[in-house]
Nucleic acid binder design. Structure first.
Lengths: 246, 246
DNA sequence: GCGTCAAATTGACCTACATCAAAGACCAAC
DNA sequence: GTTGGTCTTTGATGTAGGTCAATTTGACGC
């Protein structure tokens, strides 16, 4: 129940270049998936590529939702704030993920980059025009949003009913599934976010996250070879702990 | 952190009758919204009407997701369970709301009626066929799912960062906005769910919900004229409490 | 009206996690 | 490699809300 302050540069005018979707290396996991070559050209025409450094605000909750974004490299955190500064992370995004969901034409959350990040930006108005003539695209979007909804419901279960240890274990497992591992081992995950970001994602404090991680280290379930890198050394035990099977 | 047991009859084979969408009185708020008369006939052809009593399981988490439903009367609770029985409500549904979201072709949550309830049932396979030829329908579905996602993110903020009092006040406000009031006064809301349902929705225990409600009564912010009916007597104060503005 | 049973309320006590505070560890700049 | 700042870890203590248990209230059938 503490108030937080977060200093970060805001994107007044994001540097943007037109870059053809054809060159995009993550098309198979993003919005563009399942589009024909011709369709892709049309999508390409209304998109531009954006690069930001670490800690840059990409969108602000309540601002008019003029753009949608697709993460193509790096990572992003999404969050909502209460008037007194309490913060809830609503998600971490990695290449292929999508952001810009709106309510009443305003963004429903703020977004900030966690590291050097590339995004593909679409004008909402133009994308909606395009949706009318590309049914595949609308279907793709529906699938992506439905998936996000299912994940959001999993997160409700976590926030409402899991213990601190279960929360942290579940979080590590979800990263393991979704995040791109920088090593080739599936058990090594990159943690581009800080402890307090993790706390605000799990409904815990920084201190509790830290204590829980050292606990898991002592139990031999994880190890942290370097800052920002975490290795899972006992996947079975981690999975059991995440569901309270102990 | 308690284990729960819930006894309720399961729908082995739901009674269903074909009923034309033309007669449906909630079309303007449901899936069918924004469909032309012709389109409506096509949707009607793949839907059937279902009536259930109180406490009937409509869908089970993990079952194959063969159907989608639209609530046309009554109310429904959605929930997920942990292996040890801990439960998290993911939503309460009222006429116009939609259920049946799936992950890997299985339902992502269980659903149970809170009172006598009518639903409109669609075969998923047939609906997907129809989506291909009715772009309006897919657009409608996308809007509905996007809205649900925004609400889910609000609920994350509630579960992760609000106090018990803020949770209960936020809950009452959201019901006030969404639920059909049986009286004509906007401040009178119907509470078809029990205290433990509310607790499982807010990440609290039955006892804490009860205590918080009596607290609000003593503060003169609400009154409970009859079981299942709640009246908001100080809307401004309730709104402030919901956001922690005190 | 009366008995039964489930749900809601209230009270006493406890604990998981928050809060407060003080070291360490990391890292970027010079 | 020293310095300043931020982030993480660790420890000591506090508390919101959970747990356990006992009434009370309400709904329904007879």
């Amino acid at each position: 129940m503490r108030s937080r302050s977060q200093v970060a540069s805001t994107v007044a005018s994001l540097a943007s270049v037109n870059s053809p979707c054809e060159k995009c290396n993550i098309a198979e996991m993003s919005l563009c998936h399942a589009l024909s070559c011709d369709d892709l050209k049309q999508l390409s025409a209304i998109s531009s590529s954006i690069e930001v450094g670490k800690g840059v605000t990409i969108i602000n909750e309540q601002d008019p939702a003029n753009y949608l974004f697709n993460v193509t490299a790096g990572s992003v955190k999404l969050y909502k704030l209460l008037p007194d500064g309490r913060r809830q992370m609503t998600g971490f995004l990695f290449p292929g993920d999508f952001l810009g969901i709106a309510m009443n034409d305003c963004y429903a959350y703020s977004a900030e980059s966690l590291e050097d990040t590339k995004l593909c930006r679409f004008s909402r108005a133009k994308l909606e025009e395009l949706l009318k003539i590309l049914p595949h695209l609308e279907n793709r979007l529906l699938n992506m949003v439905s998936n996000e909804l299912v994940l959001a419901q999993d997160q409700m279960l976590l926030l409402g009913r899991k213990t601190a240890k279960e929360k942290v274990c579940s979080f590590l497992l979800s990263l393991c599934k979704r995040a791109p591992s920088k090593s080739d081992q599936a058990q090594t995950i990159s943690l581009p976010m800080g402890r307090s970001d993790i706390g605000d994602y799990l409904g815990l404090t920084t201190e509790t996250v830290s204590r829980t991680l050292t606990n898991l280290k002592k139990m031999g379930i994880i190890s942290i070879p370097a800052t920002g890198i975490l290795e899972i050394t006992n996947m079975q035990e981690l999975t059991d702990l995440a569901e309270g099977l102990d």
